[in-house]
Design a protein around this nucleic acid. Sequence first.
RNA 1: GGCGCCGUACCCAAGUGGCUAAGGGAGCAGUCUGCAAAACUGCGAUGCAGCGGUUCGAACCCGCUCGGCGCCUCCA
Length: 491
Amino acid sequence: MLSIYNTLTGKKEPFQSLQLKTVRMYVCGVTVYDYCHIGHARSALVFDVIRRYLEFSGYQVDFVKNFTDVDDKIIKRANERGVSCDVITAEYIEAYYQDMGKLGVRRATNEPKATQHMAEIIELVATLIQKGLAYQVAGDVYFQVDKYPAYGRLSKRKLEDLLAGARVDVDERKRHPMDFALWKSSKPGEPSWESPWGPGRPGWHIECSAMSMRHLGETFDIHGGGMDLIFPHHENEIAQSCGATGKEFARYWVHNGFVQINQEKMSKSLGNFFTIREIFEKSEWPDDITGEMLRYFLLATHYRGPLDFSDHAIQEAKQALDGFYDLFHRLAEVESQSTGDQRLGEAIRRVREQFTQAMNDDLNTPMALAAFQKLRSDVNKLVEQGLSTQARQQARAAFRELGSVMGLFQLDTWRFNPVRIQESQIISVQDEERAGVKGSLSDTNIDSKLAERNEARKQKDFKKADEIRQFLASHGIVIEDKPDGTSRWKR
RNA sequence: GGCGCCGUACCCAAGUGGCUAAGGGAGCAGUCUGCAAAACUGCGAUGCAGCGGUUCGAACCCGCUCGGCGCCUCCA
């Protein structure tokens, strides 16, 4: 049974969905005015894994993740470029799908946009006014926080405390300094929608209340997002939603920790953030491998803790994955020995048990990875003892199945060496290879070189054998000799 | 000023009251090997920022101190 940390109660709780076999989950997506950075990646990935694990556990997951496509920053960006907001949002939604796609983040079952829910938003604002929880000032509508007694229950703050720390000049027209906008009248040139309060656009928080209710109902199971959304965004969502319906809103509030650079939060003002596409562009590995490296890196720390991003950390993830794919490489070979076969079932049963236990404990992905490492070690030993072709396939399938929950171990080919094109390093080149680019040797080329080398080894011509190895190494090919005199290779 | 987080070996990172403090990387030693790679075996924190307290028992609970950070304004 899954236990999950609930920000609302401040402790781990057994997870129980409202409907028997369905989980309804809403996650705050991104405001589409720029490329996503590694912090967005973490958030998207964490909830992607929660979703996958719930599905793995037998639930159907109705997963809603929004795009905020009306916002000050979008308007600003549109004005800078002299285009409409639609152009900006369309561009960055597309970029989002590209970047998250490379990371293997699955699309939510529903990905609504604020601009497509104006009717629901306006209706919700009207309800709040009607209930006396919101008031109109000129063309603006504000939520009156002191009319909602439970205000602050998510972020554990008191209204008085918030006032003391207020860093912004208070708008004189507000009844209470912490009141926040539900509807903003539009200035000329800004996108606007007709409303009972005049032309305007929604405040930031109201869209999530409106869209989650529209797609998941008034009360649903999980609401998530980054830690920074706890206040004010989620606090305000609760006030609006509960205020309007008189019912509980989301039951489990789940928040992921930040990605940091050198112990500091990434931010544009510090200039210390990395976009996802920048990371892929700079990577010396193919996209599918870079994506898996990033996933491994992001999941190697518990989702609620802080996570420091660095090249070194990414390389460690690569090394860890190399170990797994090295094993998968060997598992793909044909073998008739089967001494180790009978022990395999036990090892797989154990990893399944450990994996489930780890994930059930508040999605402890680092512990789940440790379980995979244990299986890797076990299977390596069994391979040494002799594992039949069939058992090898069974082992590979186990990694693939459990790994799929974290989006790992799904690739059929892997690269152990970066592809570096440096002509000057070519050592001995024969005509047919001279034409080719470094690192682009075909499999048949490699196989024939290898056959040549093994013939030389048989003749004890180790000088020639080493030359061939060196030649292949310069193309990023590593040879591993097997006890039986044949060799395997990897790139 | 309020709310909160983090500090575990060279690095990353689980564990949050009770067997020998997971796991990975790096390192060292060994097995295997023509060499190599991979794999395997062994070594590695008598201690979990520091001090004090609670307890039969604490890295885990409480208090204080030190160091680092976040939120309270848009932010994953």
